[in-house]
C-alpha cells in the first residue's frame, strides 16, 4: 500500500568566508563605443556566473548586459580569483566587479562634469548615458564620454579593484568568532509517496523557498535551486559510494552508482524570497550550494510522516526503508503502518 507524507527541511548557509584571505579582483574598461570589457579570474561552469557578473558591471555603468564583454579565467590576462567555490562568486567577485566598475564610472563622471557644466557628484549613469540627476535631457552617451576620457582628458576610463570579506581571526581559546560575512536561508517542503511493501520512495513535489539576497538573475537562481534539489534527491534516496575491504569502490559507474533521472525528479516550485543584503553587490548574496542542503531533510521527514519510520543514515534506499518498516511492524504488530 502506498502512503503519502509531507516533510519540512530548513537551513542556513554561509556566504563569503572570513577565516582566511578570500579575495577577488576585477578590471573594468569602458570602451569608446560605449561597451565595457570586464576581466575576472573566476570560472563559468554553467551556473551562469559570468552572466550575473556582467549584469553587475552593466548596472553600475548604466549600460546593457549585452554591452559587457567578459574575459574570464585566463591566467595570462585576468586577475587571480579565490575560486568558483563556497557559493562566493556573486558575493565576493561581484563586489570586486562593482567596485572596479564604480572606479571606471567615476572617471567618466570627472570627464563629463565640465562637458555638462555640473559637478561630478551631480551625475548618474543610466540608459547608456552619463546624465545629470533629475535632468535626463542633459546627457552624453557613455561612449562619447569614454572617448573624451581617452583622447581629450587623457584619463582612460579603467577601474581595477579587489574585494576581500574582512578577515576575522577566531578566538584561539574558544574557537568562536565570525567565520563568514553573511548567511542565506531556505525552507524546502517535500511530498512523498512510500510503498510499504517495497520501501520505494517517490518524491512527488518539492516547494523550495530560498533567500539569496537580491536575485540578480531570477531565471539562473531557479536553475540553481532546481539542480540543487536533484542533488538533494540523489543524496536522500539513491547516491552512495560503496567500497570493498581493500578500499576499492565497488560501484564505480553509473549502472550501480544511481543518480536521479528525469523520472526520479519531482515537480519543483521555486519561491525566491527577495531580500537586500547591504554588504553584497546590489544586495546580492549567493545561492549555489545552499540549494542542496534542505532537500534530504525534507524528504526524510516526509517519509516519517508517511510511514512513521526514521532512516538515520543516507541514502534512504528502498532496502533501508523497507527494513525500518518491518522493524516497526515487529515492534508493534497490531499497527500495520501509519495511516
Amino acid at each position: 500500500m502506498k502512503h503519502r507524507g509531507k516533510g519540512i527541511g530548513c537551513m542556513w548557509y554561509p556566504i563569503g568566508f572570513t577565516v582566511a584571505a578570500n579575495p577577488s579582483a576585477a578590471t573594468v574598461k569602458v570602451n569608446e563605443d560605449g561597451t565595457a570589457t570586464l576581466l575576472t579570474g573566476t570560472v563559468e561552469t554553467g551556473q551562469g556566473s559570468l552572466t550575473v557578473l556582467g549584469q553587475i558591471a552593466a548596472e553600475e555603468l548604466g549600460i546593457s548586459t549585452e554591452d559587457v564583454h567578459v574575459v574570464s579565467a585566463d591566467t595570462d590576462a585576468t586577475p587571480m580569483d579565490t575560486g568558483a567555490i563556497a557559493s562566493r562568486t556573486t558575493y565576493v567577485t561581484g563586489n570586486a566587479i562593482q567596485l572596479a566598475a564604480e572606479r571606471a564610472k567615476n572617471i567618466l563622471f570627472e570627464v563629463a562634469a565640465p562637458m555638462l557644466g555640473v559637478r561630478p557628484d551631480q551625475l548618474e549613469a543610466r540608459d547608456r548615458k552619463i546624465q545629470v540627476k533629475g535632468y535626463p535631457q542633459s546627457a552624453l552617451p557613455v561612449g562619447e564620454v569614454a572617448n573624451h576620457a581617452q583622447n581629450g582628458a587623457g584619463t582612460p576610463a579603467i577601474g581595477s579593484a579587489s574585494y576581500n570579506p574582512p578577515t576575522v581571526a577566531m578566538d584561539p581559546e574558544t574557537g568562536q568568532g565570525k567565520p563568514f560575512s553573511t548567511y542565506v536561508y531556505a525552507t524546502q517542503i517535500a511530498e512523498v509517496e512510500v510503498d510499504d511493501e517495497t520501501g520505494e520512495v517517490q518524491v512527488i513535489r518539492i516547494a523550495a523557498a530560498h533567500d539569496c539576497g537580491t536575485a540578480i538573475n531570477p531565471m539562473l537562481v531557479e536553475g540553481q535551486v532546481q539542480g540543487g534539489i536533484s542533488m538533494g534527491v540523489g543524496m536522500a534516496l539513491e547516491e552512495e559510494m560503496l567500497f570493498d575491504d581493500q578500499g576499492r569502490q565497488i560501484n564505480p559507474n553509473l549502472t550501480n552508482y544511481i543518480m536521479p533521472t528525469s523520472l526520479d525528479m519531482p515537480h519543483i516550485d521555486v519561491d525566491i524570497v527577495e531580500n537586500f543584503d547591504p554588504t553584497g553587490p546590489f544586495g546580492a548574496k549567493g545561492v549555489g550550494e545552499p540549494t542542496a542542503v534542505a532537500t534530504s531533510a525534507a524528504i526524510l521527514n516526509a517519509v516519517y510522516d508517511a510511514v512513521g519510520v526514521r532512516v538515520p543514515n543516507l541514502p534512504a534506499t528502498s532496502e533501508k526503508v523497507l527494513a525500518a518498516i518491518k522493524a516497526k511492524r515487529n515492534a508493534d504488530p497490531k499497527r500495520v503502518s501509519a495511516s
Binding site: Q47, Q226, S230
Partner: peptide, 19 residues
Amino acid sequence: IRDALSGNLCRCTGYTKMI
C-alpha cells in the same frame, strides 16, 4: 517528456527547465 529523457543523465539542472 520525462520518459523520453530518462536515458539522458544530467547532473546540473534537475531536468526542470529541460522539460
